[in-house]
């Protein structure tokens, strides 16, 4: 599995993503992109759905991308990647282009993945195209001013699910996009977080080696939308993992492997209290919603953990199929 020295070496010899973009101070998205792209050994083609990442890295006439890069709308990144991959396969078969390995990587935010691009994503996963879809999940439409998305957690305040005297933030629960991807019975699905770069890097490598679709849901961060100092982005995401809010796991051919089991899980409040979007949950009248959110988190963790326990023998028979523990 790649070390940071390997990633740095790759970045020195083949610059795939540079600075000079206009993403916010302390943004989490570049860490997703750089870690994923610097981990994949083959040349890559990047397909980028609309979102913060796309808008801020390609201000005309500049670009932060050192790879072939295609911009798509919110809704069709996965469809365009399907077409690219199919054309590439056809041209290779015909001998029109060299028979060299190439990885197609889609980057989409949670808006472009959970919500607007879901239909195209579902189609591409079901058809079995060989590509890696990476969702950099910052839990809201941050680019357009912090509106709620299907990824916004229950009770989080956004500009369209505000908290106040009459309300406690988002009423609905977060959509489990990772589970939706798993339900497509594709070879590889994983959840990762920017705070655990080694786990993310390993998963990018494993995902890129699959013969069919792979889906990576990476918890990124958003200082502006979550409401914390830019310097805290990594720490806040780490707390999401350590409080079990965001389980790090992978699903190989339908089998669950849990990559991280916090020895002493922290109470959810440790994560919530660091973000302004959950500030209102600490008021006495909102305590019940905090309890409700904790119950949702516990239920998801229990479900993933139970599956991992059931599937442990499958991995024991095939140790090469699973990632490490972090």
């Amino acid at each position: 599995m790649p070390s940071l020295k390997t990633l740095a070496h790759n970045a020195e010899t083949d610059v795939r993503f540079t600075g000079g973009h206009s993403l916010c101070r302390g943004c989490g998205a570049p860490t997703v992109v750089r870690t994923v792209l610097n981990s994949i050994p083959t040349p890559v083609v990047v397909v980028n759905a609309t979102g913060c990442l796309e808008v801020a890295t390609t201000r005309y006439p500049t670009t932060a991308w050192g790879v072939p890069w295609l911009h798509l709308a919110f809704e069709n990144a996965a469809a365009a990647a399907s077409g690219l991959e199919t054309a590439y396969r056809a041209l290779r078969k015909r001998g029109a282009i060299p028979d060299e390995p190439l990885t197609f990587v889609v980057f989409g935010g949670d808006g472009g993945t959970y919500d607007i691009g879901l239909q195209a994503l579902s189609g591409a996963l079901e058809r079995g195209h060989r590509f890696l879809y990476v969702c950099y999940d910052n839990e809201g439409y941050m680019n357009t001013g912090i509106q709620r998305s299907g990824a916004t957690p229950f009770a989080a305040a956004t500009t369209t699910s505000p908290s106040g005297r009459r309300d406690y933030g988002k009423h609905q629960t977060r959509k489990d996009i990772t589970a939706i991807a798993i339900a497509h019975h594709i070879p590889y699905v994983a959840q990762a977080a920017i705070s655990h770069w080694q786990d993310l890097s390993d998963k990018a490598v494993r995902a890129s080696q699959q013969q069919g679709p792979a889906f990576l849901n990476v918890l990124s961060g958003c200082a502006l939308g979550w409401g914390h100092p830019p310097a805290d982005t990594i720490e806040v995401v780490r707390l999401a993992v350590e409080t079990r809010y965001w389980p790090l796991y992978e699903v190989v051919q339908g089998h669950y492997w849990l990559n991280h089991r916090p020895e002493r899980p922290l109470p959810l409040e440790e994560w919530l209290s660091r973000q302004d979007r959950f500030k209102h949950l600490f008021a006495s009248e909102n305590r019940e919603h905090l309890t409700e959110l904790q119950a949702l988190v516990d239920a998801e963790w229990t479900q993933v953990e139970a599956r991992a326990v059931v599937d442990a023998p499958w991995f024991e028979a095939r140790p090469e199929m699973r990632g490490g523990r972090v």
Binding site: L4, K5, L7, A8, H9, A11, E12, F17, T18, G19, G20, H21, L23, R25, G26, C27, G28, A29, P30, T31, R34, T35, I194, W197, P229, P230, A231, T233, I234
Partner: peptide, 27 residues
């Protein structure tokens, strides 16, 4: 790995300093 602006300079995989032209000061 955690610098959003690729403003940490390396040479032969070793840290050598900062690219102040691109560092946004996020800490």
């Amino acid at each position: 790995v955690y610098c959003p602006d690729a403003a940490i300079l390396t040479e032969n995989q070793a840290f050598v300093g900062f690219d102040y032209q691109h560092c946004k000061g996020c800490e």
